[in-house]
Design a binder for these strands. Structure first.
Lengths: 247, 247
DNA sequence: CGACATGTTGAACCTCATCAACCGACGTGG
DNA sequence: CCACGTCGGTTGATGAGGTTCAACATGTCG
């Protein structure tokens, strides 16, 4: 990576690692120049708050690296992670400055921020940009609804397996481009056990137990409490209770 | 209502009951004329399929009256309702003909259909229309995530109460325009117990038991197994485990 | 009236939450 | 250097909330 060593002003959008994947992918040279003028990189360590649900969001952002979690909390403290954002995902809501979620860095995170007003102006000028954001939002909606099925109807074992499959698919997608699933997979867990529990609607104890159960059955191998190997993704997918294509 | 007795071709968009609320609300006279040319009313009885998740969606639609449920089903038959659509809501997904949900009439339903290709052309011509759809999609995303909190973290009692509060708020919103919540409310349940269970991630037995428990405690009155009265919405909202404003 | 779908109630069981103890890694300060 | 507290994770014992299975009630429609 060259980017890390370049001084901030040279971190131009046209060289960005996530360009062509992020919302800026549809923009031409002129638009990118405009975008570059308002974009600003930020690095965050794990646990740091990105946006609070208390106050208005001052910016939009693209996740460049790391994992961001969106959470909702009840008055008595019960928590639910309602969305995970990975590398080219987009953070923030158009049309309304209100932000109903608490956004927090689950791992160390790098994001690319756009001030609210300037970015909205860009959206209005470039319909392509709006279309892209729209498409992403639709994808997020699909993902949210998939997760509703998981939260409402799946067993603890299926929940944990589904989460692991989510990561396994992601890592396969990033590493090789082939979409076949019968391959082995290896990845880092971007969440602590507590976060996994909050994502799956379980307790940390149940998550831990299910993980050891999967380990004992040889379905996964746990290396570092964070690094996980899945020797046979098909087998795990079957336990996750999903068709081999579903998320 | 005049509409019901008018022959189909006279059911013009400019007279539509949900105009100004639906996606067409932003359109001017000229646009409405265009829309009218492609729109087509359909009536469906409860239980009828609107769109299958198996095949591509051939149309978009606005819900004019009644309730539509979006469901996801696992291979073994477990089901989860992932969205409820009421009167001015929009049905269908732009940019992709694939439709990952099974859409079914929960009650008798009236919808206004737009063929896929013609409507997409309209979207591209009128950015306002796209913005409106985008906003609605963002609202749906928020609702889905609220429901994730419910499915993942709430107790059966809280789930049932939350659902009742959803309907109570809706009925108050429709009847009077005042946003105060301490009022009594009355409404029809648009779902069977089975559907309520599938919406809340419970079994029908649990739903039934929680309803009778709420009834016994005087928090609700059940008239017709379908007609429900809530004497004190604040009290019910407290049991639903939500701040008085949240969905 | 009988038949069928829809809803209720009861009893037994089971999954998962709760409470608690324990482990290992890490960082701090005496 | 070791004692100490903290944090993240694991494991065990126990119990409650919700499911399951089954019987019964109610409502609706021919």
């Amino acid at each position: 990576m060259m980017h890390g060593v370049l001084p901030e002003p040279l971190l131009r959008c046209e060289n960005c690692a996530v360009r062509n994947q992020a919302v800026c992918g549809a923009m031409d040279a002129q638009q990118i120049t405009r975008l570059n003028a308002i974009a600003r990189r930020r690095k965050l360590v794990a646990g740091q708050t990105i946006m609070s649900d208390q106050d208005k969001a001052e910016f939009f952002a693209n996740v460049v690296s790391g994992t961001v979690k969106l959470t909702k909390t009840m008055p008595d403290g019960r928590q639910q992670i309602v969305g995970l954002l990975f590398s080219p995902d987009f953070l923030g809501r158009a049309y309304s400055p209100n932000n109903p979620y608490f956004a927090e860095a689950a791992t160390d995170v790098e994001i690319c921020c756009f001030p609210h007003d300037a970015f909205e102006k860009l959206i209005n000028e470039f319909p392509d940009l709006q279309s892209r954001l729209f498409e992403r939002t639709l994808d997020e909606l699909d993902a949210a609804r998939d997760w509703m099925l998981l939260l409402g109807r799946k067993t603890a074992e299926e929940k944990v397996s589904s989460f692991l499959m989510l990561l396994a698919r992601r890592s396969l997608l990033i590493n090789c481009a082939e979409p076949q699933t019968p391959q082995p997979s290896q990845f880092e867990l971007p969440l602590t056990r507590t976060d996994m529990a909050d994502y799956l609607g379980l307790t940390i104890e149940t998550v831990s137990r299910q993980l050891t159960k999967l380990k004992t059955r040889g379905l996964i191998r746990i290396v570092n409490n964070r690094l996980v190997q899945v020797p046979d993704t098909e087998r795990l997918a079957a336990i996750a209770g999903q068709d081999s294509d579903a998320a």
